[in-house]
Design a protein around this nucleic acid. Structure first.
Lengths: 236, 236
DNA sequence: TCGAATTTAATGTGATCACAAACTTTCAAT
DNA sequence: ATTGAAAGTTTGTGATCACATTAAATTCGA
């Protein structure tokens, strides 16, 4: 309950499913907190600090840190300090380019495997996104939006690219939250509706266009945020 | 020295640099062994087995396994057994597509940052590859070839994509060895020479073409190997 | 002789501990 | 008051251990 000594970090707590062990729980919890921007860039993280905050031994936290580090979600400095990476304009640009490159490819390669149940699932998620928009629930909007993309791409059972894409999402973490919260709400659903329509028509080109537009909408909305550059390179 | 009980695994030993700790050493060693195809797909790996073979405690091996698992280099079965993943034709095809997609992008985005010293480094590596070809040293050929690509892409200081590419290399691991060993030797150098020429001319299109051709040469050589399909999906 | 149930061995997990490196604080000397 | 070193604290690392789960071996029954 009490925060760690050196850093008073506030973590969004998650229920621990009965099936998952401590390792997985800690990893998922930290991952979710990074994805929704709960922990700020530049914040130093300590193994014992997080372990204490979570009421577990340092071991699962160590493993989670190492996993997150190899996904680029956290950065291990040469002082062996772990911090949430600082975003730079160049990194941001590169991450967006890669999202478009990988996600349009993923969508296209998933298209031949799309069946009716998949479309039903996607429409269901889209409905939940609509609900989250109504409620103004930013966390759910962000997570459900990722669910939509992941579900689409995962229709291809031989998909290799999804973990790579999730790594990009993790690195964009704090900013996707800003993007979603500021986004003109109607656009999200529109792009998803466009994508679903393309799926029904088996229209590869339209699908790519919808996915790319969806991502570009997010980027545009980030750039439109007043004072967004305070989030780049600056210390928190 | 003695092999583990359940699996008699033979590992290519690596010198442990004074600077790196046990974690890093074990990870690098396992990674290198996977990259050059020393451990066969389908082979079950155990923490205690590897730890015993390396003369370390199970702890660093555990962390290395988890890191390699999140890079897709090893697979954690639901029986919590760790194995080297089996290759399938579909996975192989998808991995090759992604290599071309990501590496041509990486090369193109690195092009503006290429300076003369970079070209000197690349020509130096290319010379070493030539030596390895003369000696028939397959391990060096494989590792130096990766060095060439990594050095090229890393000229861009804001490169995000290199870890993603290395994840693909890891998953292709055992097969890149087959590719290199069977490859008509002259082609490797030719494609690299083409790439270097494109760099000198700042010719983006020619660079992409050279990189894609280099990768496709590897794929073609794999497909030309007699009985290559014994390596797919079959147990070793 | 073959198959199912029980026993035995092996494995992953997670906590605790000792140690070394790095950071912080303290305190004295200039 | 400022700088420097030294003592103390914090942190990551890696080994050892106890425990629950799972695979393997053995035994018993048909």
């Amino acid at each position: 309950m009490q925060a760690s000594k050196s850093t008073n970090l506030e973590l969004l707590m998650l229920e621990r499913a009965a099936s998952q062990n401590t390792n997985q729980w800690v990893y998922q919890l930290l991952r979710t907190n990074l994805l929704c921007g709960k922990v700020q860039p530049g914040l130093p993280l300590t193994i014992r600090g997080v372990a204490e905050a979570l009421g577990v031994s340092p071991m699962p936290v160590r493993e989670a840190f190492h996993r997150l580090a190899c996904e680029g979600a956290v950065e291990v400095k040469n002082n062996r300090r772990v911090i949430v990476p600082i975003m730079t304009a160049e990194k941001f640009s590169e991450l967006c380019d890669l999202r478009i490159l990988l996600e349009t490819h993923a969508a296209q390669s998933a298209l031949p495997y799309i069946r009716d149940p998949d479309i039903v699932s996607l429409e269901l998620i889209d409905g939940k996104i609509d609900e989250a928009v109504q409620e103004g629930n930013v966390e759910n909007m962000s997570l459900l939006n990722q669910d939509f993309h992941r579900t689409l791409y995962s229709a291809n059972p031989f998909q290799i690219v999804v973990p790579l894409i999730e790594s990009l999402w993790l690195q964009l973490g704090p900013f996707s939250r800003i993007a979603i919260s500021k986004l003109e709400k109607i656009y999200i659903v529109d792009r998803h509706v466009e994508a679903i329509a393309a799926l029904k028509q088996q229209n590869s080109f339209a699908l790519r266009r919808a996915i790319e537009a969806d991502i570009r909408d997010g980027i545009a909305s980030i750039n439109s945020v007043e004072g967004i550059h305070n989030y780049f390179e600056g210390v928190a």
